[in-house]
Write a protein that binds this DNA or RNA. Sequence first.
DNA 1: AACCCTTTGAGAGTTACTTTCATTTGACGC
DNA 2: GCGTCAAATGAAAGTAACTCTCAAAGGGTT
Lengths: 216, 216
Amino acid sequence: MPLLSAERERKLGLRERKKIQTRQAIRHAAYRLFAEQGYDATPIDQIAEMAEVSPSTVFRYFPAKEDIVLTDEYDPVIEEVLRDRPADEHPVESIRQALVASLHDLARSEGDDIALRTKLLRDVPAIRGRMAEAQEESSRIVRSVLAERTGKPDDDLELRVIASSILNALHETIMYWVDTGQNDDLEQLMHTTLDILIRGLTLSALSDTALKPHQQ
Amino acid sequence: MPLLSAERERKLGLRERKKIQTRQAIRHAAYRLFAEQGYDATPIDQIAEMAEVSPSTVFRYFPAKEDIVLTDEYDPVIEEVLRDRPADEHPVESIRQALVASLHDLARSEGDDIALRTKLLRDVPAIRGRMAEAQEESSRIVRSVLAERTGKPDDDLELRVIASSILNALHETIMYWVDTGQNDDLEQLMHTTLDILIRGLTLSALSDTALKPHQQ
DNA sequence: AACCCTTTGAGAGTTACTTTCATTTGACGC
DNA sequence: GCGTCAAATGAAAGTAACTCTCAAAGGGTT
């Protein structure tokens, strides 16, 4: 009879539930304190105290202070969506769809903390550094999918430039969105951005000036 | 008689000379130790000892350990060259020239340490984070020049995307160059990269596939 | 030589981690 | 229910990157 195992699956066992609970408690406390006093001004001990756990436990759940903020990984989502796109679709279009899709996921799963999180992402050097790493990882994934589809080696310069350009442009778009008070429709901004890339960085105000590839 | 002041200018005074000397001694010691034992495995105290200064002095010269590696700023150079380009030249072309020029400067001024430095730049998270910040600053400068020339506001999304794309692509190019053992001609790689951007991320292997701007 | 101002070094303190080890507490077979 | 095992926790000591303060040393100037 699978009743017990089904129950365990739903309830995940008391241990697992407590772990999730603790994790949330720590993050919650941290967010509150970060918002009140700022990131640097908030020592781990204080977070631990408010979350009612020991400092060691905080470090056990989050190897570094930044990890409390840098929570979720988009990468697996991106890769999955990306591989699910039809193989004959143009790669840049696939990436567009995959990233927009994972963005939707994110926007829904994040609660009210999203504003605070994006601000920390922008303002705290340590967090930004980690963000850059994450972006590089995403870039590597996108590149490997591109490599599969084109048959090029995945350390090809062209692929690297294309993949990193797209990720960078979308990152810049998010920062623009944050800087302007998150009033715009992020998805629409992203489409605009990708169109700029695809068109070849042609400045709309300067489209009269010819742009030719470099001649040696 | 301007002899004294001229002498001072050349000699910079004993005090200034000593400062420069100390700075170099610290950096030199640090580079040696980083190369031998790695960045993380090298405490400041050890660097101080080898440089024959006190640990406090190290912190006085370099506010953070990363700063020992992240020395020079390209930004002023870039901005100067950029503003010196003819006003009617296409911005992307100006940027191309400015960045290639400042690259030349850099390649000459850096001695043997350039290989180690680029590796640290790639491998040490803290340093990469700082690098990302520096890139953002460069991007801001490029953007402001673009804004002047086009008359657009300098927080325009299009300008942000264009400026950051160019910087990001060149950064990716340098990383490619490092990853492949610095055998290629970096300047040529950069031209190739910029051409990819200008052409609009058209994958050469897929140029048969049409790429159209997004339709809502 | 005497005075001033800057640089330096010494030392104490803070904070983010790391490691170790003993204690607690779910999980599971019986 | 109950004992046993493994995992989660907490306490404590240690390391390393900074920060701050203050007194000593050393250039610069007259």
